[in-house]
Design a protein around this nucleic acid. Sequence first.
DNA 1: GCCAACGTTGGC
DNA 2: GCCAACGTTGGC
Length: 160
Amino acid sequence: MRHWLAKTEPESFSWDDLVNAPGKTTCWDGVRNFQVRNFMRDHMRVGDLVLIYHSNADPPAAMGVAEVTREAYPDHTAFDPSHHHFDPKSDPEAPTWLMVDLRAKEALTPVGLPVLRATPGLEQMELLQLGSRLSITPVTPEEWAILMRLGGRRERSPRR
DNA sequence: GCCAACGTTGGC
DNA sequence: GCCAACGTTGGC
């Protein structure tokens, strides 16, 4: 199982929107970057966990954990001329753009960007690199563990 | 609103 | 294939 971080602008689609969606599930449409498409196509699998992050927000923050419930399939919004994400070059017979389905799994205590930047062990996170703009990025298991602790998720019950 | 960083486009 | 111009992202 892999871990990921997905950015979204809460003005257009927020963590709460995901929680309130039918089945707490949505198709993650609108990816128009080849590197991110390839992540989805080649590496995102059902059961992978995804940290949902609010970008262009005040404050920018990690909000909660979602789960991949459907692997990459064609992003139909690319075929719809009336849609904001329309791409005339994407042929329905050979779709350029893909999306996955995500389901909200667990809300976190929001973790703001300044905290992320100040936390030892997260220095190499893709999100925090200068000029990083990919909307979905891989997260290492070590980073994930730190992020879950920052988000207030309890450790597994200790042995006695 | 500013601006740095990055991807894409298109002339050549 | 180079690279300047342009559009977008996203923190501040």
